[in-house]
Design a protein around this nucleic acid. Structure first.
Lengths: 201, 201
DNA sequence: CTTGAAACATGATTATTGTCATGTTTTGTT
DNA sequence: AACAAAACATGACAATAATCATGTTTCAAG
């Protein structure tokens, strides 16, 4: 298990690269991105410390990465040769069962995301995203729940399948309605209950 | 491993039911459905013989089913108590590794689906659906590739996140453009290459 | 072979989101 | 502090898809 550091502008791996390693996030956060032929991008998930690179399940059965892993700021990643990892799992039923549970959870999550994309309006999807981020990376502050991952409006847009302009407009509305404040550098959720209501209405 | 048969109008399990069994499709096909609070439904996947109920990954780590499994016509399903299945996996590294690979593939598939829902237009999503079905259940016939799963326009709508009317209109256009013919009972793909082109443009 | 229900179809209208254009503010770097 | 680049913002307009209404065809059960 070796540790590697990545910085801004680098890639941990890119869509189409051969899958040599199994990865875990140690420090910082990592974006999993897929792109379509016409250049549009879609961010599947933001990984946090402890996450396996599940957005890249190809590690488990595939020769090539189906998406790109991009550091958000400075990150530190642990990695292990795929073969060694598989050997370890085979010798260690507890670890294998743990991975099965983990993948099952990620699969449920991905399907929940597909449901939201299929059925909900843009503002509901964005509300759902903010709730997810709040849960996974929020810290309580005097004026609300601050999201510690730095996300621009464009990042949010890519995560919920809308254009940057639409994300900006919806966030402006959220701000007007006092649901959130601030931008990428300092995003604070001010009214969690209302956001929850919106996401599920 | 016991075999159970289900017919029209029945459910194999419903969203919210406790997860007691692990399931595999033996014969026929099964719809995995999630619904939102306001009654809208979304079909995540159509399972075919040999498929694990992966659309319901909760079996692997969750107390309740996150979606409903509904037979499409007459189906036969194999099932096993969850505990017995886990015990088997724990004792059998080959089987466990197989499940890990399987879940990895399903996860990639779900993420690909999320990407399509996030970035593509309704007609492209429908084209992609037809291609997927053709690959998984198509049989070559004189006039094209017939899809053996019986799918109404409404089923298709639920699978790509549009309304029934929109699915009907798009299918009508596809028919006019000689990409497909027929309806639920007998759906035939007449121009696979053009459909592929549309799906990725 | 009826008959009722489901599936398919189509038009008119509205809601939602994308596109393009342009301008301001913030941020990070030298 | 000056500057460039990125992020944020907003308006006008177009495209896409939802909604509502209504009618026809197909299918399956009795």
């Amino acid at each position: 298990m070796t540790e590697t550091r990545y910085g801004k502008g680098e890639y941990i791996f890119r869509e189409g690269d051969p899958t040599e390693y199994f990865h875990i996030v140690k420090e910082g956060s990592v974006k999993c991105v897929k792109s379509s032929l016409d250049g549009k991008e879609c961010t599947l998930k933001v990984l946090m410390p402890g996450d396996l690179f599940c957005c890249d399940a190809a590690t488990f059965d595939g020769a090539y990465h189906p998406g790109t892993a991009q550091p958000m700021g400075e990150v530190s990643v642990l990695r292990m040769k795929k073969e060694a990892y598989f050997k370890m799992l085979r010798a260690n039923p507890d670890a294998a069962m743990e991975v099965i549970r983990y993948l099952g959870n990620r699969l449920n999550e991905a399907q929940e995301k597909a449901k939201v994309l299929a059925l909900d309006r843009a503002d509901q999807r964005l509300a759902a995203l903010l709730l997810d981020l709040a849960e996974r990376s929020g810290v309580q502050e005097s004026n609300g729940l601050r999201i510690t991952v730095r996300l621009t409006r464009q990042d949010m847009a890519n995560m919920v399948g809308v254009t940057t302009e639409t994300a900006i407009r919806i966030m402006a509305r959220f701000k007007k309605d006092r649901l959130v404040t601030g931008t990428a550098a300092r995003l604070v959720i001010r009214d969690l209950p209302k956001l929850k209501l919106l996401a599920s209405t």
